[in-house]
C-alpha cells in the first residue's frame, strides 16, 4: 500500500459519498446516468466474487463490501425509490450500455491471462470498468447546466483513476516482478476518457461559472 493507492481508494470512496449525498439530500438524481451506475454494479459483482474464497486483507474486504453496497444503494434509489426515481432523466440517458457489456465480455474471452471462469469474469470487470463512465459522460453533454455535486462526483472518479496510474508507476519502480498489462492498458484508456470532462470542469471552475459540457 502506497500513498497514491490509498489516496485513489479514498477518492473513489468520496465520489460515492458525494453521489449518495446528492441523491439523499436533494431527493433527486437529475443528471446521473442509471446505466453507468448499473454497469458499476456489474463491475463490482464480477470483480469481487473472490470475497467468497480468497482473503487479501481486512482493508480490501471492507472496501469491496462498501463498494458493492454503495453501487446497489445508488441503483436502488434511481430505479425504485418512490420520490427519487421520478427525477431520473430517462430520455437523456440513452447510451446503449448493453454493447459495452457484450464488447467487454468478448474481449475478456479473447484476451485474458488464464482461461478459467473466475479469471475471465475478473478480466471482464476490468474491461467494463474502463468504459462504464461513457453513458454518464454522454448524459452530461445533454444535461446542460450540471449541478455541483454531479460535476464533483465525476471529477472525483477521474481523480481516482489518475491516482491509480501514479500508484502503478510507483509500484513498478519499487516492486520486483510487478507487471499487469491488462489492468494498465484498461486503466490508461479509462483515465483518458475523462480528459475532455476535466478540461471543461477546470475551465468552468477557473471562470467561476456553472459546469456545462459543450
Amino acid at each position: 500500500m502506497n500513498v497514491f493507492r490509498l489516496a485513489g481508494d479514498l477518492t473513489h470512496l468520496l465520489s460515492l459519498v458525494v453521489l449518495l449525498l446528492k441523491i439523499v439530500a436533494t431527493k433527486s438524481c437529475r443528471g446521473v446516468s442509471a446505466k453507468t451506475q448499473e454497469l458499476y454494479a456489474i463491475v463490482f459483482v464480477t470483480r469481487y466474487l473472490d470475497l467468497l474464497f480468497s482473503f487479501v486483507s481486512l482493508y480490501n474486504s471492507v472496501m469491496k463490501v462498501v463498494f458493492l453496497g454503495s453501487a446497489f444503494s445508488i441503483v436502488y434509489f434511481m430505479r425504485y425509490h418512490k420520490v427519487v426515481r421520478h427525477t431520473y432523466d430517462r430520455e437523456l440517458d440513452t447510451f446503449r450500455s448493453s454493447f459495452l457489456v457484450a464488447g467487454s465480455m468478448v474481449l475478456a474471452l479473447l484476451i485474458n491471462s488464464k482461461y478459467t471462469f473466475f479469471e475471465v469474469l475478473w478480466t471482464f470487470s476490468i474491461y467494463l470498468e474502463a468504459v462504464a463512465i461513457l453513458p454518464q459522460l454522454v448524459m452530461l453533454q445533454r444535461t446542460g447546466n450540471i449541478d455541483n455535486l454531479t460535476g464533483n462526483y465525476v471529477f472525483l472518479l477521474g481523480m481516482y483513476r489518475g491516482l491509480y496510474i501514479l500508484n502503478w508507476i510507483y509500484r513498478y519502480s519499487t516492486e520486483r516482478r510487478y507487471w499487469q498489462m491488462i489492468v494498465w492498458v484498461s486503466g490508461i484508456i479509462q483515465t483518458a476518457l475523462y480528459a475532455d470532462f476535466f478540461y471543461y470542469y477546470l475551465k468552468c471552475w477557473n471562470e467561476n461559472r456553472t459546469l456545462v459540457i459543450p
Binding site: S113, W122, T123, Q180, V183
Partner: peptide, 10 residues
C-alpha cells in the same frame, strides 16, 4: 502477467 490471484488492488 499478473492474474486475478496476484491482484491486490480494488
Amino acid at each position: 502477467q499478473m492474474s486475478r490471484e496476484g491482484h491486490d488492488e480494488l
